[in-house]
Design a protein around this nucleic acid. Structure first.
Length: 517
RNA sequence: GGCCCCAUCGUCUAGCGGUCUAGGACUCCGGCCUUUCACGCCGGCAACACGGGUUCGAGUCCCGUUGGGGUCACCA
């Protein structure tokens, strides 16, 4: 039975790199008819776990990555919070102690620090002297008499080596002597990540540990722990991390400032920011960051587009297939086809996937996607009337591919603002209405024609304008730009005739009149 | 710095010894379409890090160099 897991610590946000790792775990489990477990690594949490966890769970739900066991989904191998398993880890630590594979260490932190610095200045690897190691009751008593406290350290072998057969990287051999005597339990009895992680993987019967490459160097000590506890080892697969745009550094949430210097990254961010502003969202650097999944949800990306893009960050099927439905991903995913080198996060390609996916969403579904943005921006009333819905439907239809993320609907806010509150883009107004000598006159004349037009649908309007142009012996460009600015306030938008039709006769006339003043 | 990992167009990648004068996608650059902005369509630029081997034959295997990265906590 294949069982995989993703073990986030409750940090309050879901990172793109984390999603990628989780996705691979999820896909692998689904591919093999196994289970995907979500486990919470909160061994070191002072903060509010529930609060910091929620955005992560919400992110996964939004993306459609479901877990078979974990928070809100009890299973036979719980608890799924490490903070609830302290006794269990204690047992494991004791067992290691009894077996002589770990020891109580009474060194004070500054003493370790001194040894470390000495090693450093002598340009040697730091290996703890074990000077404060206590393996007998007498030694313990002696150290305790000095008012020392003990932690539990792994007693790593000082010769030989360990071989990890990694499903992605192949055979990796590491000398035991390179490994430190890592602390697995603090003086206060709480346990550290490595111990907890190994114990949990065993308790939860994890068959495949699929995680990011930075954990590769942790693996030997985990193998040591697992072997010491008599556990059967899981299969390891260390996938490369997701790198920054344009570099091979690990993508980090904290470097937003730096990434914003990247033009394409900034483009995504700015686009999102414009939408957030119109929504009146409070932008917090904590979540409003294209490195974090939340950002995409807020701005109106499609989960499927994001997932598809992320899938290709380090995995490919062949030389041409790029698009995958969930089922296709599940059907085709394999660890053998995971790349070894890190893949850079490419904002442009993400955008391309998003546009492509969005362009395929049927108009009626797009309306549903877009409505909440109009509501939040205060442009339409809730509950939404059928009339409003119909109008939004027309706009969505007319806008077509111009709406790349749901929040883009706000580009067409002008349809919802009161006519007398319409603002005109100054530059466009100057160029299209004031500067051309005949623009105003033509517009005034055309307004009369519009007023008298028999029907006001896009098709008839097109004919009306073309007749007008022909009768006057002018080019369409001489009037249409002025008309657009007059009616929308902007230099660009979707089809002119659709625009007029959606606004309706009354509003068009009012707006033209207003522009002519 | 030690240890470990990695290395094909700017980016994501295909390539598991000959079919590679290296394929696809995104970006970019031309052109077409066009009432603006997009979309779409057509075309184009662009890569096997370097040096040694192995082999009849190397992008593909081996070694080294260079470069990049990860990791060296009483964080996860």
């Amino acid at each position: 039975m294949v069982r995989t897991r993703f073990a986030p610590s409750p940090t309050g946000y879901l990172h793109i790199g984390g999603v990628r790792t989780a996705l691979f775990n999820w896909l692998f489990a689904r591919r093999h008819g196994g289970q995907f477990i979500l486990r919470i690594d909160d061994t070191d949490q002072q903060r509010n776990v529930a609060e910091s966890l929620e955005p992560i769970l919400a992110g996964f739900r939004w993306l459609g990555i479901d877990w078979d066991e974990g928070p809100d989904k009890e299973g036979p191998h719980g608890p799924y919070f490490q903070s609830q398993k302290l006794n269990r880890y204690q047992q494991a630590a004791d067992k290691l102690l009894d077996a002589g594979l770990a020891y109580r260490d009474y060194a004070r932190p500054e003493e370790i620090q001194t040894e470390r610095e000495a090693a450093q200045s002598a340009k040697r690897d730091f290996i703890y002297s074990r000077r404060w190691m206590a393996e007998t009751d007498r030694q313990q008593a002696a150290f305790e008499a000095e008012d020392r406290q003990s932690v539990v350290r792994l007693k790593m072998p000082r010769e030989g080596s360990v071989v990890i057969d990694d499903l992605v990287r192949g055979r990796v051999e590491v000398q035991w002597a390179r490994e430190q005597d890592h602390v697995i339990q603090r003086a206060d009895g709480t346990c550290l990540y490595h111990l907890a992680s190994v114990v949990d993987d065993y308790d939860m019967q994890i068959s495949h540990v699929i995680r990011a490459e930075e954990h590769l160097s942790n693996t030997p000590r985990q193998v040591f722990i697992a072997q010491g506890l008599g556990y059967e080892l899981p299969q390891y697969a260390h996938v490369p991390f997701v790198a920054e745009p344009g570099s091979k550094n690990k993508l980090s949430k904290r470097k937003l400032e730096k990434y914003l210097k990247n033009r394409e990254f900034a483009k995504i961010y700015d686009h999102g920011q414009r939408i957030a502003e119109r929504l009146g969202l409070e932008i917090s650097a904590d979540t409003f960051n294209p490195v974090i999944v939340d950002f995409y949800e807020q701005v109106g990306y499609l989960p499927d587009a994001i997932i598809n893009y992320i899938l290709l960050l380090g995995w490919s099927l062949d030389d041409k297939t790029e698009e995958f439905t969930r089922d296709e991903m599940i059907e085709n995913f394999s660890l053998e086809r995971v790349n070894k080198a890190p893949a850079s996060f490419d904002p442009q390609k993400l955008t391309a996937f998003q546009s492509r996916y969005m362009s395929r969403v049927p108009a009626d579904e797009k309306v549903l996607l877009v409505l909440p943005y109009l509501e939040t921006a205060g442009l339409i009333d809730s509950p939404v009337t059928d009339e409003t819905k119909a109008m939004v439907g027309k706009i969505v239809q007319a806008a077509g591919d111009r709406i790349t993320v749901s929040g883009d609907i706000l580009d067409y806010a002008d349809f919802f603002t009161a006519d007398d509150e319409l603002t005109y883009d100054e530059k466009a107004f100057e160029k299209r209405l004031r500067k051309p000598p005949d623009a105003a006159a033509l517009l005034a004349d055309f307004k009369e024609i519009l007023a008298a037009a028999e029907s006001f649908d896009a098709e008839s309007l097109e004919k009306t304008l073309k007749d007008f142009v022909e009768a006057r012996g002018i080019k369409i460009g001489q009037i249409i730009h002025a008309l657009r600015v007059a009616v929308t306030g902007k230099a660009q938008g979707f089809g002119m005739f659709e625009t007029l039709a959606i606004l309706g006769r009354e509003r068009c006339l009012v707006r033209i009149e207003q522009a002519l003043k």
